[in-house]
């Protein structure tokens, strides 16, 4: 190895990745996989639930990916990634022992602390379960501080359901409600069929004292917010995580702007009224 060289290799340089080694790389579903990483320098990457990193695959490029591991175990950095382009494809091909560049963590967090004393409803769609999982871990670690806890999760088909074992484990707990639905059923599926928003009306929570955390495709989130507000949850109690193109993740590149917001710095997690208007306008 070459010795490190100059000032810009200091952590102060926001554009230079740190090196992480792949501990595990396994498939969750046909198009999603999970990378478990460890820092080469041994320094754990401390993060808050909802934050993301930029992952670099040698020679292919960088992508923003939400962290999906447990914040109380930062020594192992976990991302569940959906393969949608050349970089996420290249990351999928990195084997155990291989290296990946990581920058971050970046962005705002789910309001887990603020949610204490309230009922908590997680509404996840598709890969949107991954960015919510760290918040869910945190809530379950301090379960007694919260009221009712519900996870409502919608996937495309039964085969697309992420974290099956964990969902089973959570479902068997007496102190949380877990509902999983699919848009398209398959043979043998005995669970719910229908969109995730339909689960909201079937969930027991006190709308006045509820914090909702919603993550999924933007259209799904719009429907989910409508359903939640229909149940009487105030918009200020609903938090969403948005997605836009991010190249630098630190507000330099301008790509992720949504009106006045830089999704990378001001988001990805927003309290709904902050973005409500912009989400209703096309092509912002």
């Amino acid at each position: 190895m070459q010795p490190s060289i100059d000032v810009s290799s200091s952590p102060a340089d926001p554009m230079t990745p740190r090196m992480f080694r792949v501990l595990r790389n396994y498939n969750d579903t046909a198009d999603c996989y999970t990378l478990s990483l460890q820092a080469e320098d041994g320094d754990p990457l401390l993060f808050a639930p909802g934050q993301f990193t930029m992952l670099y695959a040698f020679g292919r490029g960088e992508v923003p990916i939400s962290i999906s591991g447990d914040p109380s175990d930062p020594g192992t950095l976990i991302h569940t990634i959906r393969e949608v382009g050349p970089v996420t494809q290249a990351l999928r091909e990195v084997k155990k022992g291989g290296l990946i560049g990581v920058r971050g963590p970046y962005g705002t967090a789910w309001p887990v602390k603020e949610a204490e004393g309230n009922d908590v409803v997680f509404v996840a769609g598709g890969i949107g379960l991954a960015p919510l999982r760290p918040a869910l871990y945190q809530v379950l670690h301090r379960r007694s501080r919260f009221g009712k806890v519900a996870l409502l999760y919608g996937a495309r088909t039964p085969n697309d359901i992420l974290y099956r074992d964990e969902l089973e484990k959570w479902r068997s707990r007496f102190d949380m409600q877990v509902e999983v639905t699919v848009d398209r059923s398959q043979a043998g599926w005995r669970g719910h069929v229908g969109v995730v928003t339909r689960l909201i009306s079937r969930t027991g929570f006190d709308p006045v004292n509820t914090i909702a955390m919603v993550c999924g495709p933007e259209v799904m989130m719009r429907f989910a917010v409508a359903e939640l507000t229909g149940r009487g949850v105030a918009q200020e109690q609903i938090h969403v995580s948005l997605e836009r193109n991010m190249k630098c993740a630190v507000g330099f590149c301008g790509h992720c702007q949504l009106g006045p917001a830089f999704i990378c710095k001001d988001g990805p997690v927003f309290v709904f009224p902050e973005v409500k208007r912009l989400l209703s306008i096309r092509e912002v």
């Binding site: 190895m1 070459q2 090196m19």
Partner: peptide, 19 residues
């Protein structure tokens, strides 16, 4: 230019472009 990545026996390492 931001940096260069070079493959080596360990995997690869990153050489930042000094300002």
């Amino acid at each position: 230019h931001l940096w260069e990545a070079v493959k080596d026996s360990e995997g690869f390492h990153i050489l930042p472009d000094p300002p």
